[in-house]
Structures are given as C-alpha cells and as structure tokens.
Nucleic acid binder design. Structure first.
Length: 422
RNA sequence: GUGGACGUAGCUCAGCCGGUAGAGCUCCGGGUUGUGGUCCCGGCGGUCGUGGGUUCGAACCCCAUCGUCCACCCCA
C-alpha cells in the first residue's frame, strides 16, 4: 500500500521529469551555479531555528523521528536551512561568495492535493555573501531564463515585494495589530487566530471581509527602513533595465521566518490553487541565526512537480517511445548471436536506442510488439542473416522497402536519423 | 485541521425504481510455414475501496472507515 501523499513516477512521466530537470540544470550551469548534494535528514533544531518555531512548516508539518541516540531528527521540509548549514560548516562562507544549487525530495505532512504532496521535489538556488540588489536581479533573471528554456515563460507572472529588515517588520507588526485589534470582529476565524501568532500572514488572506478590514490600514512601505527601501528601489531599477516584467504585490509575505528585504514568487493560473511554481527572496539573517558569521544571502526554490505539471499543460503529453530500433530474433537459438550483433550496432550508432526482443514467440508477435513499442524501425535476425553477417531492416513508419544490409550499413543508414525524426 | 465530490476489470467508464455485474481499450490465442498496423473470432480478467446496518434480496439505501480529487489552510 502506497503511503499517503507519496507518488510513484512512472516511465512516461519520469522521462518528462528528466527532460524538465536537465533543461533547468543546463541553465544553472550556464549561469555558473554549482551543484551540491545535501542530506535529507537534519536535526529538528536546524529547522526550528532557521525556518522559525511559529511557522506552520515547523509547528505541524515536519516528519520528525528520534535517532537511536535520542537526537531529534527531521526529514527536511525545505532546503535553504540545510544548504546554509552545509556551506557554513564546510568553511565555504568565510570571506567568499558562493552560488550553488541542489535538488531532491522535501517532506511536509500536509493534506495532499494536485501539485502538493507529502514528498515533493525542489530545485533550490542560493547565493551567499552578496548583499546588493544585483544578485537579487541575477536570481530573477535566472528564473526567467529557466521558464524560457522550458517554454512556459508566457504562463507565469512574477510578483515582487520587500518585507524589509526584522526591525521594520516588528514596527509594522505592532501597527498592524493596533489597526486590526479594534476590527477583530470582521476578520475570518483563521485571521483572528493569527492576530496573536503571526499577524503578517493576515495580509494574504483570501477572505473578502478580511481584505476589506485591511483597506486603509497601515501599509508596509511606510515602515520600510531606508536601507531596505533603497535596496528595493535598486532591484526594481535593475529589473527595468533587464526588461523583466513584474507585479508589485504589497501583500506578498513568506511563510518562512528567515526572509528579509526582497521576496518574490512566480505564479501561474493554470494549476488551480497550487499556483506558485517558484518562490524565494533574500535571507540575510539565516546564517547568523544558525550560529555562523553574519552573511547576506538570497535564493529561491522551484517546485518540480508543479513545473512538470505546467510544462505538460502547455506542451501536452505524448506517450514515451522507449526505443528507436526493435530487434526481432526469429529462432530461439539465435538469441546470443543477435545480442552480440546489436551490441556492435550500439557502439556504431551511439545516439540510437536498441531494444532486443526477449521471451521468444513468433515473428508475427514480435513485430506486433515492435509496432506497439512505437519504435521507428524493426531489425530482423534470422538464420540466413546471422550466417551472412546481415540484418533485415524494416521501416515501420514509412513506405520504404525492407532491406538486408551488413551491420555497418545498418548503422550508417540509421545514424543521425533519430534527430531528423524529431 | 475544515468543507464538498467521487471510489465498479490493468485503464476509461456504463449499470434505470434495490433482484448477487457489462462495454471499449489493453493483454493472450486463432484467422497455416520468416513480416506489424486495419478487420474478424475466441479467451484471461471484478470478494463493485473496506467494515457494519436496513432488506427475503444491496454495486445501488443508511452509518463508519480508508483512499483519490477539488476548495479552504499552508506553501514550492
């Protein structure tokens, strides 16, 4: 029985995952970001300190377990804290900058929904040691390039905000509480509860009444500290220069405590309620919070499931064709000779995918399987062919006549054809 | 955690007012020897999500439970 919220990714979809991921990794590579591979298991403390004790993620969504020595561990619910920990512990943040990315599963105990699973996958991108808005702009530019590479750029929109310094946020928080306390009656129940626990989160409530109660209330931009304000203006100027469209969303807040200053999110309306495919921002306080030396940093995380979903919605899905050439063996005794011949062909035509029929059966049945597999060609090995070092090449998709060719000629005929087909 | 819809063959689904299940696709075999796709014939395949209840009788009605999907919440 499959565990709730877990997903099996089967051949066709796995292929698309690989295509989507490799397209993104390729872009990251060209931006000179370096890959790191990080553990899925960390201490609970890393997340309660880094992500924040009062966040939903830490409060009620972590998969916790106790190690044999009594240590409280958690399956990582996000990647940034672990990445900061890893780079800091390995001395990579001392007087230097780092631009890295990582990918892999994250775990959150949530109610599963389309585009939201208990094990989900992220590609995280982080830049450490850079405090100016130029790196924020680079990260956003990188995001744009990712969507362009996947052909989904037209389906996403960038939302932007600045949540300022911790001190500015504290001041705004007080003002917000002061404004909402007398209007408590018109808030939805969730927001009323948050007034005490996490008032900033009330800003992105979807309740009509709550949104009305916020009208004419304190605006965060009036509380933004000068340095953050300048940083934000700098970022917007850079985005304008880069011709990157964005929508300012003063109600965009992050669910994780470590964010400061710039926050951004790419959303799409083609995925229903789970519209955020990528989100991030600056987190200047995180490294210090984890016990390192104060280090400015910024980054974002991509929801791989959602990006694949969006990619599929835009481009459609076609059944996977696992092989280009399906090789049939006419007599059971020829199987060894056929396997050897096909292996020589694989070396001569490395771009092509060869599948050799296994399990015996009549030629009729083997050709039927060749056809069903979607392969473009069938290659037949009979007694006569093996004896003479030949193979019969049959075009399953065109009208060309079947030909008996030497193996080298088969390779020459097929090589380079796969790309031409697509 | 809250609300709603839905769980019937491997897949997509039908099944009327309660009378103990069907189709299409897939798969396997056949339509004579080493030639696929189309067509024809045959076959495999279901404790109707699970457990209770009502009834002479439940896929169908009721309750519970699990699961899926959608929305809220939260987030990637």
């Amino acid at each position: 029985m499959r565990v709730r919220g877990m997903r099996d990714v089967l051949p066709g979809e796995a292929r698309r995952w690989r295509d989507v991921e490799s397209a993104m990794v390729d872009v990251l590579d060209r931006f000179a970001y370096q890959e790191v591979r990080l553990p899925m298991l960390e201490t609970v403390e890393l997340f309660s300190r880094g992500v924040g004790e009062a966040t939903d993620i830490v409060e009620k969504e972590m998969y916790c377990l106790t190690d044999r020595d009594g240590q409280a561990m958690a399956l990582r619910p996000e990647g940034t804290a672990g990445c900061a920990r890893a780079l800091d512990e390995n001395g990579m943040l001392y007087n230097q900058t780092q631009r890295v990315f990582y990918r892999g599963p994250m775990f959150r105990y949530e109610r599963p929904q389309k585009g939201r699973y208990r094990q989900f996958h992220q590609i995280g991108v982080e830049a450490f040691g850079l405090s100016g808005p130029d790196i924020d702009a680079e990260l956003i530019q990188l995001g744009c390039e990712l969507w362009r590479a996947l052909g989904i750029a037209g389906e996403v929109r960038l939302e932007l905000n600045s949540i300022g310094s911790p001190a500015a946020r504290a001041a705004f928080r007080e003002a917000l509480i002061g404004w909402l306390e007398p209007r408590k009656a018109s808030l939805d129940p969730d927001s009323r509860r948050r007034l005490a626990t996490n008032p900033l989160r009330i800003l992105d409530s979807k309740s009509e009444e709550t949104r009305r109660a916020l009208d004419n209330g304190p605006a965060f931009k009036d509380y933004l500290d000068d340095a953050s304000s300048e940083h934000y203006a700098g970022l917007k100027a850079l985005l304008a220069e880069l011709d990157i469209d964005y929508v300012e969303n003063p109600r965009l807040v992050r669910g994780l405590d470590y964010y400061t200053r710039s926050v951004f999110e790419w959303t799409t309306d083609r995925l229903g309620a789970q519209g955020a495919i990528c989100a991030g921002g600056r987190y200047d306080g995180l490294v210090e919070l984890l016990g390192g030396r104060a280090t400015p940093a910024a980054g974002f995380a991509i929801g791989v499931e959602r990006v694949v979903l969006l990619h599929d919605a835009v481009h459609g899905v076609s059944p996977e064709v696992p092989a280009d050439v399906y090789c049939c063996v006419l007599q059971p005794g020829l199987h060894g000779a056929a396997l050897a011949a096909v292996q020589r062909l694989r070396r001569m035509a490395p771009a092509l995918r060869f599948r050799v029929h296994a399990g015996g059966g009549k030629l009729k049945n083997q050709l039927k399987r060749a056809d069903r597999s979607g392969a473009r060609w069938a290659l037949l090995f009979g007694e006569a062919e093996i004896r003479e070092g030949l193979a019969a090449l049959k075009d399953l998709r065109g009208s060309a006549e079947q030909e008996r060719l030497r193996l080298a000629d088969v390779a020459a005929r097929l090589n380079g054809r796969r790309a031409a087909k697509e």
